[in-house]
Design a protein around this nucleic acid. Sequence first.
RNA 1: GGGCCAAUAGCUCAAUUAGGUUGAGCGCCACUCUGAUAAGGUGGAGGCUCUCGGUUCAAAUCCGAGUUGGCCCA
Length: 1068
Amino acid sequence: MSRFGEVDDQYDPHALEQRVFEYWDDVDAYKQTVEHRSDGESFFFVDGPPYTSGSAHMGTTWNKSLKDVYLRFFRMQGYDVTDRPGYDMHGLPIETRVEEQLGFENKKDIEEYGEENFIEACKEYADEQLEGLQSDFQDFGVWMDWEDPYRTVSPEYMEAAWWGFSKAAERGLVEKGHRSISQCPRCETAIANNEVEYEDVEDPSIYVKFDLQDREGSIVIWTTTPWTIPANTFVAVDEEGDYVGVRAEKDGEEELLYVADAKHEDVLKAGRYDDYEVVEERSGEEMLGWAYDHPLAEQVPDRVDAEGTHEVYAADYVDTHGDGTGLVHSAPGHGEEDFERGRELGFPIFCPVGGDGVYTEEAGKYEGEFVKDADPEITSDLEAAGALLTSETVTHSYGHCWRCDTGIIQIVTDQWFITITDVKDELLDNIEDSDWHPDWARDNRFRDFVEEAPDWNVSRQRYWGIPLPVWTPEDRDDDEDMIVVGDRDELAERVDQNVDPEDVDLHKDTVDDLTITEDGTTYTRVPDVFDVWLDSSVASWGTLNYPSDDSRFDDLWPADFILEAHDQTRGWFWSQLGMGTAALGESPYKEVLMHGHALMPDGRAMSKSKDILIDPHEAIDRHGRDVMRAFLLSNNPQGEDMRFSWDGMQTMENHLRTLWNVFRFPLPYMRLDEFDPRETTVDAVADDLELVDEWVLARLQSTKQTMTDHFEDRRQDKAIDALIEFVVEDVSRFYVQAVRERMWEEEDSASKEAAYATIYRVLRETVALLAPYAPFISEEIYGTLTGSQEYDTVHMCDWPAVDEAFVDEQLEADVAFLRAIEEAGANARQQAGRKLRWPVPRVVVAADDQRVVEAVERHTDLLAERLNAREIELVSPEDRWGELNYSAEADMSELGPAFGDRAGRVMNALNEARIDDPSLEALAAAVDDELEADDELEEAMVSFVTETPEGVAGTAFGLNGDDRGVAYVDASLTDDIESEGYAREVIRRVQEMRKDLDLDVEERIALDLEIEDDRVASLVDDREALIREEVRADELGAVEDGHRKEWDVDGVAMEIAIESLAAAEASE
RNA sequence: GGGCCAAUAGCUCAAUUAGGUUGAGCGCCACUCUGAUAAGGUGGAGGCUCUCGGUUCAAAUCCGAGUUGGCCCA
């Protein structure tokens, strides 16, 4: 870009962004920036890999924008930043998508299609999805290493998972075990608890009577899963709970039922008993050991029947006041808690259900039926056996597979685990080694989650994932003597077949058939693949291609910084901690920034499936990338959700437009004067800097300090707020207004040079501060300001440091007062009906305190200029402005009782009184005529009102809500003031006419002026020189044709004509 | 059902370690100004600070209970 070149009149985000994209390509901006920092201190950022399904939504967009702003910030601070993006490409979500595309219904279809083909199809699908995300992220202007993302499906990455798992195995943390797990019967695989989604469904709700042996009566249990009754093994009670025996009567028959005391009314009501009576009170403890008959003994002949089963036991999962009866049907072959308790009690684990949710042979009569379909039959069998107390339905939340929405079932299967419960203390210790923003997320939420986390089931009975690197002795499937392979070299070395470690893909189809033979034993591979959460859990070394590339691991690991949304406490924050601790004994990250979710403008969650969303592409279409990014980044990134807002987007566009306008304002002048920013620096012109220059430079220093502090607190939102306030309030609305005339000066002057140097410095640093947020507009402004004199891209700049020479807190405070006075003055002017264009003879500032006096004394000239006042008079706090009078406003409700029928006259006197001291004494003296000897005026009767002299209006000014004084504007007219006022009116109109003709700023004109009112005409004549200079009129009164217009200036008719001299000459 | 977080103007948020008359920006309405400005300026409307209790001379702020929303867990 050429320095001070022509720029768009209007901020046009789309055209600008396209130009910048092309420019970045031309100069290889990203690569240069990375290279520029290659000698810096290392900073290891790890990208949490988005799952490759669908395109970028607003949440991902916010996430990547946040990453981008921090990575750019760290780079500007000099760090050599690791910025490899990642993609999470394995797992059930993609499998189910591909199954849908291929029209598959279950695993058999996959087997028929062929594992290899299916895996290939998944790979293709994942690759396609990755491309969509890649191009979106690049389109948002995110600078990461897009040429080399880490992909969880690459052999190097899969090897990183193998390595981590094998390290955990070396520490004895890998075991195969029987566990109760959540199973998706359609996907035929275990799914993690955190992949279970809960939805309300209607289910059976049955109360079942288990007849007691050796004593009269039945115990009553409640369940919403009749299909688990065949596996019933024991009944649990609360040892400390209160239970009752109830003798109940229905249809003339009587029975004795045992339930929790707190639940007996509900239960008997549900059973529609005619009448009942509590006949026994028992503690849970007393019921321990009671034996009962399995109600489906006939239907399920192979049911569990070991010593001590079908008896009552204590368990801590019983609640005598919750749902149900206070007696809990327990089937260790299904429920997780039942399983744990059953194991403690030493019972066999009976689970007559297969991975597809179909009863096995062990289920006797029900063999071959899908469990949920068997509910009605089981219920009617219970009824036939006289065991059904009642059958209803209930709507409750029930777990579903997060991908295919099938209701999950709890069954006990063999799975592989990383037994992180064995290192729980270490996990909790390692939490302490990471800093979180916000800190409560770590200390409350994350700690709670880790404390309660069970062992990690890492095996899935699926295809599209990283194969477990576990080989077990042929014909045995336990974890004794297992072999865990840690990398590809080890694989090639140990397997019986020929494998090229450089070449092997590592997916299931390439390793399934490999065997290992050692010491005469042949080992075969466990057919499972890893839980997809294990993939991303190794990202901290997978990003570095460790272990296949060990060049950087020692230097970089663990990660310095990660940044994800709050749903990752259960996800990636956790899985990484678990894996890092299991494999290496350390937290794999040092600092966490946890942001929230993107919500709809009305506060609802966005949802793609329900089509409730704001598409980032639409946001870009409407406002551009910089605006979207800056809007997203102006939201609190710490734990709180972000509401998207179109208004907020528009406001951000307005702010960026203001910056654009500030930037383009001085360009023509700088160009004309051949201003050289390298020679004419603020330091070079230090002696010529005027007050406003020093002030805006001081504000720049404090803005940099504020922004840096906020960035270091990870509150980039507050940082950009500070920057916008500086640009809009200080630079645009104050500084630029104040220096316009200096820039218009035609002659070279030290003052103009100082203004150029100042605004140049301000703009040059502002775009560096803005660059991480709005990289496109910053680039174009930077390029236009610097041409080829600096870096090729603003993103190579250092983060601007505070320049102590320009820090001036006193000046900042002074100007804050001046601006408050100016604001009050503008208000007073409006009250007095005098526009700013007309000078006023004086402004009187009545200061309430010494600080205001100091500010005004130090900067009287500036204040006079801003207020367009000929003179500033200062009244110090201990004095009162002598020209003020006071009147009183009487309160009749007080006067009435005090003065009776004289009240009206007193009131008039009070209201008419004019006194020069607002005291009751002075007032009493002024209305003396109406008062009688013992009358006493009281504070409550009146309130004092300040009366300004004729033609003067006053307005109070203050700072942060505290009144600090009053500004009085004396708007009286003199010939001299009218002369300048009318001259300014003429100038403004001529300027407007110049604009009509689209004249260049430098263009000379001829001016013709006719004013009917002789007095005004003569007043204007007095200012001829001023008018000629301001409107660049070389000739007066000689316009024949030209541009001619009639004006009405406050009732005075004028006719103005102008003509460009260049045009006039050309036509001659 | 449990945990965490949030709730202040129509919208987005402030209210300065630890109580002292609720503020800003945007939007809206009126007026005004304009040779950088789809700008700017002035004024205005707009709030039982989610509800109910408690502590206190005093609560948006501290405590308790609830409501709504978001996330997490079951």
